[in-house]
């Protein structure tokens, strides 16, 4: 273990820990824009700078390994001034349209501007104008809002192993692009959208949907495959408007295209909304009340059981539905109808 002192507090950390991680262990909040604990350190945004005794200049804490006896300051007038200037420089080339940006309220840059009280900008000048529209079906890419933190490029490479995007050009012209600047054509997992600290990447499904007023978040479990990813549903009234996942759960916040973007079926207007009964074979379905439908079904099963024996009926329960529902379903057949004729499609 290594012992160091940060802002007057002692802390012991394992070898290989960065100064940023050591500070976070002490509960010290160091601002970052390009950092994600799930990815390798990058050191692009320069916001996590700290002063280390014996070093002439501030260094980025996310890329500096802790060493024995290190004395670190995460806050000083100088650091505050430098960080504020960094944010000002980022904002000098950022569209000032938080009012209509779908990431407003979920934007690290916006939060930093707020924290540093940046109203006017000393560095007003030329701004980038990337007007190209990407025609992919899931992700809106607004390059003008990109701060070149590299999170999207890195998550696509390090986590997803796809490498659908990369950097091109230098300096003011620098941008994140797809091969040859074509429309994005990838696995559409949306990991990039989930890590983007600004409005440069947003889901087209939630663009234009309510951002905070009346929005409710519910933690639940994804309904697709057996990975069991934890998701959070953002809803507005009875509409699901967005799916996201917290980074501290067992799937580490990563989702696939179906889990993240495949939720429209929930509010589909093709959903069944009323019980339907076909009175005789070949006749059309007729709408029924729950009382009618439930009495009819219970009566039919009971009479089949009485006439032809318990094993003349069977049930298929569902690998899509909850444990409680499946339990009660097999109990209905076993205890209610006296048969073990109950199975589901795991066998297929």
């Amino acid at each position: 273990m290594l012992n160091l002192n940060i802002d007057g507090k002692d802390v012991s950390v394992a070898k290989g820990t960065t100064v940023l991680e050591a500070a976070q262990k002490l509960g010290i909040d160091v601002p970052t824009l390009c950092h994600d604990a799930r990815l390798k350190p990058f050191g692009a945004c320069r916001l996590c700078i700290v002063e280390i005794a014996g070093m002439p200049k501030p260094v980025t804490s996310c890329t500096t390994p802790a060493t024995e006896g290190m004395v670190v300051k995460t806050n000083s007038e100088r650091l505050y001034r430098l960080r504020k200037t960094t944010v000002e420089l980022l904002l000098s080339d950022h569209p000032n349209d938080c009012m209509v940006c779908s990431s407003s309220g979920d934007c690290t840059l916006q939060e930093l501007a707020y924290l540093y009280g940046i109203r006017e900008n000393r560095f007003v000048g030329e701004v980038r104008d990337h007007s190209r529209i990407d025609h992919n079906p899931f992700i809106i890419r607004d390059q003008n809002k990109c701060v070149m933190c590299g999170l999207c490029v890195r998550v696509c490479d390090e986590v997803q192993g796809v490498g659908a995007i990369g950097y091109s050009e230098r300096g003011f012209e620098a941008k994140v692009i797809t091969p040859f600047g074509h429309d994005l054509d990838c696995e559409f997992c949306g990991q990039c959208v989930s890590v983007c600290p600004t409005g440069a990447l947003t889901g087209s499904l939630w663009s234009g949907k309510p951002r905070s007023e009346g929005v409710v978040k519910t933690d639940t479990t994804c309904t697709y495959c057996g990975c069991g990813c934890n998701i959070t549903l953002r809803t507005h009234g009875d509409k699901v408007i967005r799916v996201e996942s917290a980074s501290d759960n067992h799937n580490r916040g990563w989702l696939c295209v179906k889990g993240r973007f495949g939720y429209e079926f929930i509010n589909s207007n093709e959903r069944l909304t009323t019980p339907l009964i076909r009175k005789e074979k070949g006749a059309p379905f007729e709408k029924a009340t729950w009382e009618e439908a439930l009495d009819y079904v219970a009566g039919k099963f009971t009479s089949l059981q009485q006439q032809h024996g318990s094993d003349s009926v069977a049930g298929l329960c569902s690998a899509r539905c909850t444990n409680e529902e499946n339990y009660l379903f097999q109990k209905l057949f076993r205890a209610g109808l006296g048969t073990n004729n109950v199975d589901h499609c795991a066998r297929y």
Partner: peptide, 22 residues
């Protein structure tokens, strides 16, 4: 064995099989 659906494991656990109770 990687389960193909969100609750294949659960449906089996809950006795959704012809030879076993929960």
């Amino acid at each position: 064995p990687l389960r193909g659906q969100n609750n294949v494991q659960g449906a089996c656990d809950m006795g959704g099989l012809p030879n076993v109770y929960p």
